[in-house]
C-alpha cells in the first residue's frame, strides 16, 4: 500500500489530465480544474515544507555551534522578522492579523514588510545579482583565451548583441551607407536574434519537449518511481 497506492494516484492523475485535453467537456473539464486547484494548494504546502526544512537545518547548525553559526543565527532571525511582520501587518495590498498597522505605517513610512523589502531585501538581491557582472567578465576572458572556433563564435555573437542593443553600437556603425545597412550593428544584432538564435532555441525547445514527454510517460506509467524515496 505504501508504494503501490501512490503509484496508482500518479497514474490516475496523469491520465486524467491527458484525457481531459482530448475531451474538453464535463465532467473532465470540471475535474481538471479541481485537480489544478488542488495541485496549487498542495504545492503551497510543499513550499511550507521546504521553509520548515530550511529553518530546521539552520537551527541544528546553531545548536551544534558549527563554524559560522552566528551567521546562521542572523539568517534565522531575519527569516522570523520578515515572516512575523508579514503575517501581523500584511503586505502592500493585503492586511494582516492586526490589519494594516496605520500607526506603524506613519512612523516607518511604509508597512513593516514593505520597509524590510525596500531597504533590506531589494538592495541585497540587486547587489547579489549585480556581482555576477564581474564574474561574467572573468568568464568572458577565459572563453577568449580558449581560442577555438566555437568559443570565438560565442564571444563575437555576444559582442555584436551587446553593442547592437545599445546606442553606442548604433553610433559606431552609423557611417555605413544605407545600401549596406544590414551590416549596421543594430540590424546585424536583430538578424542574429531573429534567425540563427531562433533556430538554436527551437532545436533546444523541440529536443527538451521530447525529453519531457518521455520522462512524463515514465512517471505516469510507474517506470520512474525515484520520487517515492526508499522504504527505509
Amino acid at each position: 500500500m505504501k508504494r503501490n497506492l501512490p503509484l496508482f494516484f500518479a497514474f490516475f492523475c496523469g491520465i486524467l489530465v491527458i484525457v481531459s485535453e482530448f475531451i474538453p467537456h464535463r465532467p473532465f473539464s470540471m475535474l481538471i480544474d479541481t485537480l489544478q486547484n488542488w495541485f496549487m494548494i498542495i504545492s503551497g504546502f510543499a513550499i511550507i515544507l521546504g521553509q520548515i526544512s530550511l529553518f530546521q537545518s539552520n537551527l541544528s547548525k546553531i545548536k551544534q555551534k558549527e563554524s559560522g553559526w552566528i551567521f546562521y543565527l542572523a539568517g534565522l532571525l531575519s527569516f522570523c522578522l520578515m515572516l512575523i511582520v508579514g503575517l501581523l501587518w500584511g503586505t502592500q495590498e493585503t492586511g494582516g492579523i492586526f490589519g494594516h498597522g496605520l500607526k506603524l505605517q506613519a512612523s516607518l513610512g511604509a508597512k513593516p514588510f514593505d520597509y524590510l523589502f525596500d531597504f533590506a531585501y531589494m538592495p541585497l538581491s540587486a547587489t547579489m545579482f549585480s556581482l555576477l557582472a564581474f564574474f561574467i567578465a572573468s568568464a568572458a576572458y577565459r572563453a577568449f583565451i580558449i581560442r577555438s572556433f566555437e568559443s570565438n563564435l560565442l564571444m563575437i555573437t555576444a559582442v555584436i548583441v551587446i553593442l547592437g542593443r545599445t546606442s553606442f553600437g548604433g553610433m559606431l556603425t552609423a557611417w555605413v551607407p544605407e545600401s549596406y545597412k544590414f551590416w549596421q550593428l543594430p540590424n546585424l544584432s536583430d538578424f542574429i536574434m531573429e534567425f540563427p538564435n531562433s533556430a538554436a532555441q527551437r532545436a533546444i525547445m523541440i529536443s527538451a519537449a521530447l525529453g519531457i514527454i518521455g520522462s512524463s510517460l515514465r512517471i505516469i506509467l510507474g517506470i520512474e518511481r525515484s520520487y517515492l524515496g526508499s522504504d527505509k
Binding site: 492523475c13 489530465v17 489544478q36 510543499a46 527538451a208 519531457i212 505516469i220 520520487y227 517515492l228 524515496g229
Partner: peptide, 25 residues
C-alpha cells in the same frame, strides 16, 4: 507524504506532457 507527492508529480507530468507536446514540439 508519498500520496500528495504522487498526486503532484502525476498531475504535473500530465500537464507538462500535453503542454510541451503542443507548445514546444
Amino acid at each position: 507524504s508519498r500520496f500528495p507527492i504522487a498526486i503532484m508529480i502525476g498531475t504535473s507530468a500530465g500537464i507538462s506532457m500535453v503542454r510541451y507536446a503542443k507548445s514546444d514540439l
